[in-house]
Simulated assay, not measured.
Amino acid sequence: MKYPVFICDDDQQQIELTKKILGAAEMILSDDEKIEFDIGSATNYLDAVNYLKEQKLDGGIYFLDVELGESTENDSGFDLAALIKKRDERAQIIFVTSHADLSLITFRRRLGPIDYIVKTGDIDEFRKTMVKTVEVAIYNLHKFNYMKAMTFSYKIGRLVRNVNIDDIIYLTTTPTPHKLLMIRQTGESQLLGSINQFDNENPMLEKISQSCLANPKNIQSIDLLERKVLFINGDVETFARSSIKRMRELLTKYNYTTEELAKREDSIE
Results as ranks from 00 to 15, higher is better:
S103D: 08
L104A: 12
H142I: 04
S153A: 11
Y139I: 08
V163L: 15
M147T: 08
Y146N: 13
L111I: 11
M147V: 08
V131R: 00
T174K: 04
V131N: 01
S194W: 07
L102V: 10
V136H: 08
N196L: 05
L102N: 15
Y154A: 04
I169N: 10
F152E: 11
E135D: 08
F152M: 06
E135R: 10
G157K: 05
K143E: 15
I165S: 03
P113G: 04
Y146K: 13
K143I: 10
G121D: 12
D115L: 01
L180M: 13
N164S: 11
N162W: 09
T120I: 05
M130N: 00
K119Q: 02
F126Q: 00
F107A: 10
I183S: 08
L141P: 05
K132T: 03
I195A: 03
V118L: 14
E135I: 00
I156C: 12
I183K: 10
T133M: 02
E135K: 03
V163Y: 01
K148I: 11
A137P: 03
M150E: 15
S103I: 09
I105P: 02
T186A: 03
I169R: 04
P175K: 06
I168H: 07
R110G: 01
N140M: 09
V131I: 09
T186G: 02
A149G: 11
I183D: 11
L104F: 12
T106K: 05
E188L: 05
E188A: 02
I168Q: 10
V131T: 01
G187W: 10
I123V: 06
N196D: 12
L102F: 08
T129Y: 01
R127P: 00
I165D: 04
L191P: 13
Y170K: 03
Q185I: 09
F152Q: 11
L159S: 13
T173A: 12
D101M: 06
K128D: 07
G193T: 01
I117G: 09
Y154S: 07
T186I: 04
V160S: 15
V160K: 12
K148F: 12
I169A: 06
K119W: 05
